[in-house]
């Protein structure tokens, strides 16, 4: 497995997309945190939550990066070279998932703590201190959410194989479709409670007592959906022609 992880690590870091997605995620989220801290005024103090203003934006960039890590392999047919070198498709795709997820977690932690640190430097208000587990989860949890989102993106990438299709699904689903589900009368709210990205948000931003899952339960649910999708993707990749 270490050899496979090394393979996928080399593959990921010898193209440009992980680099620019890291720089963009870092630059934009930390930049937004700084901007919020600078422009903030008025009666309500700046909170830890404010410092994570750009995290959803970073989430989308990481999602695109993770999807591209797979779809570009299909586009340039390097997936065939890959399966030729490692015919055990499940293990090499799991190695890829692990590498991409690892990167997503690291980028998530750096951007989250970076954003918080920048906000704290600029504002320094007491509400910005990480005082309880909820505050910590809000910052440190970003990496976990990015990681699970990366698994989701890799899975969708394997299933769809096409950059445009995978990115469209992965962006329209959390940004629009999950919100529209909430608009459905009567059942909408119940359905929305079981939407994966809604649960990711709930994990980060605290729990509404009305919700069925605890914060960590929500993350586990988000991870569960990702795992099921990945499992499906692996089965499909094993069955079809490369």
């Amino acid at each position: 497995m270490t050899a496979l992880l090394a393979t996928e690590r080399i593959k990921l870091f010898t193209t440009r997309s992980p680099w620019w997605s890291m720089i963009m995620t870092l630059g934009i989220t930390v930049g937004l945190a700084g901007m919020v801290a600078l422009t903030h005024a008025g009666d309500r103090p700046l909170t830890v939550e404010h410092s994570q203003f750009g995290s959803q934006f970073g989430l989308m960039i990481i999602t695109v990066m993770a999807a591209l890590a797979v779809t570009t392999e299909y586009r340039f047919a390097t997936i065939r070279t890959t399966f030729q070198a490692v015919p055990n498709r499940t293990s090499i795709l799991l190695a890829k998932t692990a590498v991409v997820t690892g990167l997503a977690v690291v980028v998530g932690e750096i951007t989250a703590f970076g954003s918080w640190a920048v906000a704290k430097l600029i504002d320094g208000g007491p509400e910005l201190s990480i005082r309880d587990s909820g505050d910590l989860r809000m910052v440190a949890g970003v990496g976990l959410v990015y990681g699970v989102a990366a698994v989701m993106a890799v899975a969708v990438g394997i299933l769809v194989r096409q950059s445009a299709g995978a990115i469209s699904i992965l962006l329209i689903w959390p940004l629009l479709a999950e919100n529209l589900v909430g608009l459905i009368p009567r059942v909408g709210d119940d359905l929305r409670n079981w939407m994966p990205y809604v649960n990711a948000g709930r994990f980060l931003n605290g729990v509404d007592p009305e919700m069925p899952l605890s914060a960590w339960g929500a993350l586990a649910y988000f991870a569960g959906v990702a795992a099921v999708l990945l499992g499906t993707a692996l089965v499909v990749a094993n069955r079809r022609d490369a």
Partner: peptide, 23 residues
Amino acid sequence: AGAVALLLVYSLLVENLIQLIPT
């Protein structure tokens, strides 16, 4: 990939996020 990501993230996320900027 770049064009699709830019268009969707902008129209579905950025315009909403902007609203949350204080003041």
